[in-house]
Every structure is written in C-alpha cells, then in structure tokens.
Design a protein around this nucleic acid. Sequence first.
DNA 1: CTGAAAGCGCTAACAC
DNA 2: GTGTTAGCGCTTTCAG
Lengths: 342, 342
Amino acid sequence: MSADNLRPNQPVTIYDVAAAAGVSYSTVSRVLNGFEFVKESTRVKVMDAAERLGYVANLQARGLAGGRSNIIGLLVPVLDNSYVSEVMMGIDEALARAGFNLMLFTTHRHAGKEQQYASTIASMTDGLILLVPLESPIYLNAIRERNYPHVLVDQTDESGASASVSGTNWHGAYEATQHLIMLGHRRIGVITGLLELSSARERLNGYRAALQDYAIPIDESLIVEGDYLQPRGYEAAQELLKLRERPSAIFAMNDLSALGAMDAIRESGLSIPEDISLVGFDDIPQAAITHPKLTTVRQPLVQMGRIAVRLLLEQLDHPGSPPGHETLATQLVIRASSQPPR
Amino acid sequence: MSADNLRPNQPVTIYDVAAAAGVSYSTVSRVLNGFEFVKESTRVKVMDAAERLGYVANLQARGLAGGRSNIIGLLVPVLDNSYVSEVMMGIDEALARAGFNLMLFTTHRHAGKEQQYASTIASMTDGLILLVPLESPIYLNAIRERNYPHVLVDQTDESGASASVSGTNWHGAYEATQHLIMLGHRRIGVITGLLELSSARERLNGYRAALQDYAIPIDESLIVEGDYLQPRGYEAAQELLKLRERPSAIFAMNDLSALGAMDAIRESGLSIPEDISLVGFDDIPQAAITHPKLTTVRQPLVQMGRIAVRLLLEQLDHPGSPPGHETLATQLVIRASSQPPR
DNA sequence: CTGAAAGCGCTAACAC
DNA sequence: GTGTTAGCGCTTTCAG
C-alpha cells in the first residue's frame, strides 16, 4: 500500500524522516542534498523513509538556511504579449527540465517596479531572468554589485557584467530594410520600439545602414518612435500615413506594432501590400495568420528562452566564471505583406 | 539624496532597521506588519529608518516564521495556450493590485506533477489557484484536508470544499448547438475536451440536451473526444470528416480545437462555412482573426482570473468562511464560420 | 562517515 | 506600548 501511514495533516519534515530512518536530521539533510560521503546503506535507509513518509522539502527553509531554493525569478514587462509568451515557454520548459521552479514578476512596464522587485526577488530566488527590462541602470547595478546570478533577454549588456541572449537586431533590421529596397521601395517608414531599449536602437541603426548602403537619403520624418505594443503601432502608422509624401512601405520593428499598423492602414482605406508594404520583426505566431500574412524577421524566441536558462544555470554552477553572451541569428521570412510598389 | 547611505552589498534586515531606529527588532516587525498598538512616533521612526536603509522584507524568512509570504501559487497545464494566457492576465493583474507575487508552476499536462507540486507549493505560498487541473482527487483531497486556501478555475467542485470560478458550460454549449440547429443543421459533430474534465462533461451535456430538445437523435459517432488542444482538434475533425454521413457542422468545445479543425477541414478541400459550419468555445483572441472569423461561445477569461484571485483573497482574509463559487455567464458570439447548410 | 550546535530573517507568544 | 524569548525547517560548520 502506498497510503500506508500517510497523515497529510502535518507536513513531513526532515526530523520525521530522521526519526523514521534512525539517524540524525543533519544526515538526512546530507542525503537529500546529494552529499558525497554518506554510507550507501544509510543513504538508502534515509531515501526509503523520505519516500515512505512522502517528504517534500520546504523551500523557504532551505532558501533561508543558505541552500538553494531552486526557484528562478522571471521579470517580464507584461503578459498580454505573444513575444513575451514565446520566450516564457522556452524558459519554462528548460527550467522544468532542470528541476527549477518559476516565480513570475510582471512589472506592467513600470520601471519603478523593476527596481522594487529586484531585492524581493533576490531574497526568494537563486537567479533572475530579465525579459526586455526597461533601461534601469540603478537596479541593474545593484544586482550586479551583489553578484546576483542573472541574465538579460533581448537587451544588450554594455558593461559585459550581465549574461545576455539576444537576436541579431542590427542585421535583422538591415535585411528587412534591404528586402524592401530590393522590391523597389524608396520611402520606407519605420516604427521603432522605445529608444531607451538597446534592441530598438540596434534595429534602427540597421535600418539606417541599409538606406545608406543603397544611397537612399534618410528622412527623419519617416522614423516614428513606438513602444513595441499594438496600440502605439496603430497610432504611429497613422502618423506615417498622414505625411505629405506617404511612405510606400512600413517597417514595424516588432510584429505587435505591425499588427497595429495593419489596422491603421486598412482603416485608412489602403490595402496591404498593394498600396503599402509592411514588414515586422519577431515572427510571433500571429504573424502567420494575419491577412495578408506578415513578412517579418524571425527571432528564435523559444530558443532564446531556453538559452537564457542555460546561461543562468551556468552561473549558478560556476559562480566564478564570467557571464555568457549569446547572439542568435534572425531570419527574414518573406510572406504576403510585402511586394514591389506600384 | 536617495542613494545617501546605500550599501547594497549586504541585504538590510530588520536588525539593521531596529538599530537605526533605536528600537528592538520585534517593534520593527510590528510596524512593518501594520500592528495597531504602536506609538505613532516610533512608527514614524521605524518607517523612516526602513526607507532610508532601503529595507526589503525577506519573504522566505517571513513565510517560515509563520507570517504571510504574499506569494500565490498558480498551477497551469501549459503555457502555449491563449486560454491559459488570458486567465493568467486577469490573475496577474488582480494579484499585482493586491500586492501579491505570483509563483508559476507548469504541469505540462502531467497529472503526477500536479500532485508533486502541491506540497511544494503549500510550503512556499499563501494560497493556490488551479487552472484547469486534471482530475486528481488524491492531491486535491490532500489540499483540502490541510485546509489550504485554493480555488479551481474552470473545474466544478463536486464536493463544494474548494472555491471555484467557471463559465456556464452547459448553457454555453446548449446555445452553440441551438444556434447550429436553428441554422438548419441536423448532423452536428462535436469535439470535446478530455472527458475527465468537468467542463468537458458539462459542455457535452449541453450539446446533448439541445439535440434532445429539438428532437434530433443523438449519433454517438458524431462525438469525438479531444483534449482542448489544437493538434487533437485537427485529428478529431479528420475523423469526423471521414464519416460516411459527414456532419454539416462541427462544434469544437474550445477554440483551440476549433483552430485545429479549421486546418483539417480546409485541408480536405472543404470550405467554411459553405461546406461545413464551425463553432468554438472560449473566444480567445485568435478567434476574431481567423478566416473566416470564428463563431464561438465567449467566456470572460480575464475576468475569471480576477475573480479567482478575489475568491482566494477572501479565504486568506476570512479563514473560517466557506469557499466561494462563481459562475460567469457565457455569451454566443456569432461570426462568419457558421451559416445554414446548403 | 555522522551527530551536535549554531543561525538564516522573521513572526508570535510571553513578559515587563 | 515595547523588549525578550522561542522557534519555523533547513544547511552548514565543527567535533568526534
């Protein structure tokens, strides 16, 4: 029987296990933590007892006492965002495989919250993954100074002190712009992300470089700052459409903005791609089911999540070693939303 | 200056605050926990010191010592699922507003994991929200016996011992079926969720009741068990299309299954709604952007999340009171995927 | 190899 | 009102 002497009312502690196994509780702790120098026979005895009693570690106590809590903190800006969801999936999957739990903190795009959470998180978790954090030197510095294991996703780390994963932002934007240029577009509007984000700046630079390489003068009025969210993409596209000399193509620097732009374009009576070509960035799932399907720059989002976890676990396992940095290749996915101007 | 005497290297504890304020650390604890009988002047002194030193509570310690950890656990089956995401958004929002943190556990649809997590979660959090849990009497019983605050989302609680939120599953399915019947359909195939889930059973009963009410004989071969996921929806639709007497309409009992069915139908050379009408359930965001747009039964997903939090907080605040139960109205949203049979 | 003892940061009786 | 005293369950010295 498995429900033999199960009394689920009071949680089982290592004391219970120790008593049942006839050893001291510190020995139980050793066994449970995979300490090497334990006699095999007592190891078995303890494991048996733990199993039998249905022992489950109290993570709070473990964390408090200095051990690992086996919890990783994840700081995300918002939840209603496919980009975020995709990366989260990769993180969740990798974490589950490694036996870690996930504590989720949503900042709701409030920089102050990132800062406030930072310390709380540090008291609860073994490490932290920051997904598109707003530029917040203050708390990032605090985290770095405490030498708290962490990794930035989609945020270049200028100082090199934080591990990071990101896509080839510059190159992706360059390719997207080049694609439009090759199709024959000359007036290419862009909707950026918040320019305080390094990814947004890098993509904008890629755009600029492509125009320059093809000797197309840069018209600053074609550059509208967005925030990587759909509503702002909608507004930004409206601004672009209002220009005296309307662009024949728009490069929205993430897909969500592109979706917003799509609405604005359609609403203004123009059609995609006949009147205006549209290119996005990320290749979130929706990009493949819009009409027309969205040409975009694919980022391996799920994989970015997985790699973020790998980089973090490396830090946990080798506290001394320098933080890793990974840059993953983006890939232009040409679909129906872009064609030559007419 | 705010970065006055900030030494972020060693976390600030209540001892530090106590020393700085010139009181004992238990007084600090009292102030921090909003204990009533504290002299106003010392309250201010303590708050000042805490602020100045940048004190942040250590949740592990607080939890261990018997106080509230201010963390709520959320158990979800998977993450790559709009239904889950929507409800999570509501939960996240409500929790943030109430000053709680979120610990996320993904079971990856593995019933064993739900059970295994249950105890871990209990040791870390103040309460638990279970989103579409697989029927797992064992661990649910354990949770109930420990009197651990929790609420079930989209799972009817037969025993009444667990708080719960869900939509009007029976009624929603009845309406959807009725809608198809009114359009003139007589052979209506259904793709259910796992029938071990109460929501799936309730919806199936609603379907059956509608057919009965309109005196349409029930053909069991038109009922295919799915699992609320897209791939299975695809397969199930294929089975339905292979029937000698093909249905003229399919009611997929959640939108994700409907999306899968859509692929299968299209792939078989039939078109929606001309050849086959399709109705879903949930009204996840994608439902409005498929082609044709999906007729579906809307559930107020975000709100369900919010209410789940409310029910949970009620339990935390009034430990004695009976668990609440809320049933939210669903609403038939008629779009383009359903029309009279030809 | 294993037991005993100390303490992580905090809450909650218990006194004064 | 506020300080003192015990632990919460666990890891980690330190002995033996």
